[in-house]
Amino acid sequence: MKDLLRVKSLISTELETLLNSQIKKEAHSSAQYLAMSSWCDQNGFENSADYFFAQASEEREHQLKLFKYVLDMGGQALSPEVSSLKHEFESFREVFEFALETEIAITQSFKKIASTCHKEQDFVTMEFLNWFLKEQREEEYKARRAVELFDVIGEEGTGRWEIDKAVTKISYTSEQG
């Protein structure tokens, strides 16, 4: 008896569900970053607005990358609904703290998918996921550094203006020197 499930798809039903769930999370993150960009722009933090706009674009790319993988492997990729976005923030700092929370949630989610790949010995999907895991190192680093700016620079006086300028200079390289 042929294994029709395998003939039609490289990924298991469970992994397909998890990857679709991740597609939804990336879409939500992208939309959430846009909401943050809007808040920053309206409150005069134009560099941060640009920063979050770029982040939104990156998350969208992640979503499409996952979407294509599910399709390429014979699965059914689901275009997600996005709801429950946070548009209002109490402070400039809260925006960045929320961004860090979002990135941590994304990393945790990828770890769960990676764990399932190991359990199923799906090394093909694992190899695909490695790019995202490496990407999350950068995403979390940048988000964490941004929050730290609030303590390093301070918010008093022109502090928030300085923070807004410094946000654009955050960069990550995994190589030393």
Binding site: M1, K2, L4, L5, V7, K8, S9, T13, Q76
Partner: peptide, 27 residues
């Protein structure tokens, strides 16, 4: 039933038979 030639499934439920692809059966 699974049909290896057609790569599909035949589902008989309470007297009715229907043919489904893998994707449709999952759905």
């Amino acid at each position: 039933y699974q049909c290896d030639n057609e790569l599909c499934f035949y589902v008989e439920f309470e007297g009715r038979r229907a043919k489904y692809s893998v994707r449709n059966l999952k759905q």
